[in-house]
Amino acid sequence: MSLLETRALSKHFGGLRAVDAVDLALHPGEILGVIGPNGAGKTTLFSLMAGSLPPSDGEVLLEGQRISGQPAHRLVRRGVVRTHQIVRPFPNLSVLENVTVAALHAGGRAEGPPRERAREVLEFVGLGDRTHAVPGALTLAGRKRLELARALATAPRVLLLDEVVAGVNPAEAMTLAALIRAIRDRRHVAVIMIEHVMPAVMSLSDRVVVLDHGKKIAEGTPAEVVKHPQVIEAYLGKGHAGAQA
């Protein structure tokens, strides 16, 4: 059975179909990439899956149980957590406190005092020596690690990553990509990632889903997807469908 599944998931804003009848399935131990041009509805899809927005239609299932319609904080306790493209640390709390807040909501999936678990997660993401810093003192890559740590501290089963690699320099992008792989392999968390940095998403993803104008237009292994005519058309426009990506 798939771990997380969406069935005909839709979100309409007035006449705009931001997400239009999207079906997708995430299997345990998998990294699923979600790509698509700007405005394709990727982040809205995440908001629907994480409970930040209620769907207009369709449903989200976690291990076969319907979770759509529940607020974000409750889904966190059930093991579905998201990060944001624009990182949102709590600026009035230290790095350790930021992660401790999240560690309080592991929903019984983790043992030990929250503060200790927060420390362990910070160690894991490579911020072990910055626990007492304020988030404002971290670099962008550091704040992205903090965002990851905060999500991981909730002991998630499904981690929704919204453009974690984007915006940092190439060397940092490499280490963040390695970190995402470690999240799956060492912490056994299934990951859905939105990413614009193609090398990262292509090398990390087991499967890729392509969205355009709110619809799923392709799905498959990274190698299959880049050859898909509709995908090439969505990214490059008509007339390039014969070109090799």
Binding site: S52, P71, V76, V81, L93, T100, L104, H105
Partner: peptide, 19 residues
């Protein structure tokens, strides 16, 4: 801690499980 998180960013607090 949770109250201060709510004060800082109510949506981000919800995203880490704070009601």
């Amino acid at each position: 801690l949770q109250l201060l998180a709510i004060k800082a960013d109510v949506d981000a607090a919800a995203d880490v499980g704070v009601s």
